[in-house]
Nucleic acid binder design. Structure first.
Length: 289
DNA sequence: AGAACGCCCTGCTGGC
DNA sequence: TGCCAGCAGGGCGTTC
């Protein structure tokens, strides 16, 4: 399940293997992968041909290639991996994956870029760059904790003013981007805060602590090549990360908390699962005495 | 207008 | 053994 660290691993792979090359042709299979590209997959393929890949960038879980056309125009090939998307760099004669949705060939003898996605929650689209140098479909996303424009004090102020659960706020990509269900649970476990506590009821230092941990846990995961449970996520070379060995809360139902030994609980929240320690992360502040 | 819900999709798992 | 409901869940369109 690609969240920020996994997407960053993919971005680095693209920087190494795709940036600096020129697209010769592209092909999209089916219509779903290009559903966000309103003129359709054929138009997308036609527009990609002849573009030079200048850069590979990321904000939160969004990834894009900065393309320059023969006429000097610049656009972004925006890619979201969704739940199960993979960008793979492979030899053109490598066997076709079962859920192959797109192939990009370059005008050299190097490998091709493939988009594979089992559940096709992900997709690709070509978009104009805004004056902030961010593709239009990414403009509404807040900076992520690993980028320069990230202003944590401002995020804390916005959160403090909201009567919403702190986990809901962590997952709100317009507040802070890149955090998904896994790293939200890990950050809340580290901060010893229950995800259903309201932002407005937490102190600013506590909110800052939660965000600090979100940033730290994602940095640690990045250092280990990301998290992977089921081999759906891989980097561009097909190798999985192994941060899942370091999880303290997510997916750990019934296992003793690494801090206090109390069994980790699983609760339904926002139509998905939340994992937390009942003792370290009480729903309400424990009474003294 | 901001918040919350439901749908998109496929593969795997568990229960009967 | 087989079938099917349930689950995994990010983001966005729709609804309230």
């Amino acid at each position: 399940m690609p969240e920020l660290p996994e997407v960053e691993v993919v971005r680095r792979g693209l920087a190494d293997h795709v940036v600096g090359r020129t697209i010769e042709r592209a092909e999209f299979f089916g219509t779903r992968v290009a559903r966000r590209h309103l003129p359709g997959p054929r138009d997308l393929a036609d527009r990609l041909a002849g573009n030079h890949v200048e850069d590979a960038r990321r904000r939160g879980k969004y990834l894009w290639l900065v393309l320059s056309g023969p006429d000097g125009s610049r656009q972004g090939l925006v890619t979201h991996l969704g739940m199960s998307g993979q960008l793979l760099v492979e030899a053109p004669d490598a066997p076709r994956e079962k859920h192959l949705h797109a192939v990009v060939d370059f005008d050299d003898d190097g490998p091709q870029l493939r988009f594979v996605d089992q559940r096709t929650f992900g997709g690709m689209a070509l978009a104009e760059l805004t004056p902030d140098d961010v593709p239009e479909p990414v403009a509404h996303i807040a900076p992520d904790p690993l980028e320069g424009g990230y202003d944590q004090a401002a995020v804390v102020r916005r959160m403090k003013g909201k009567d919403v659960a702190v986990k809901r706020a962590l997952l709100d990509q317009t507040l802070v981007s890149g955090v998904g269900n896994i790293y939200a649970d890990e950050a809340l476990w580290r901060a010893q805060v229950h995800g259903e506590r309201l932002c407005s009821s937490l102190t600013k230092p506590t909110l800052a602590r939660v965000l600090d941990h979100a940033r730290e846990v994602m940095l640690e995961a990045l250092g280990q090549g990301g998290t992977s449970f089921d081999a759906l996520y891989v980097n561009v070379n097909g190798a999985s990360g192994h941060f899942d060995r370091s999880l303290h809360a997510y997916g750990q139902e019934g296992r003793p908390c690494d801090r206090c030994g109390t069994p980790i609980r699983r609760e339904a929240f926002m139509n998905r699962s939340s994992y937390s320690c009942p003792r370290c992360q009480p729903r309400r502040r424990a009474r003294r005495g």
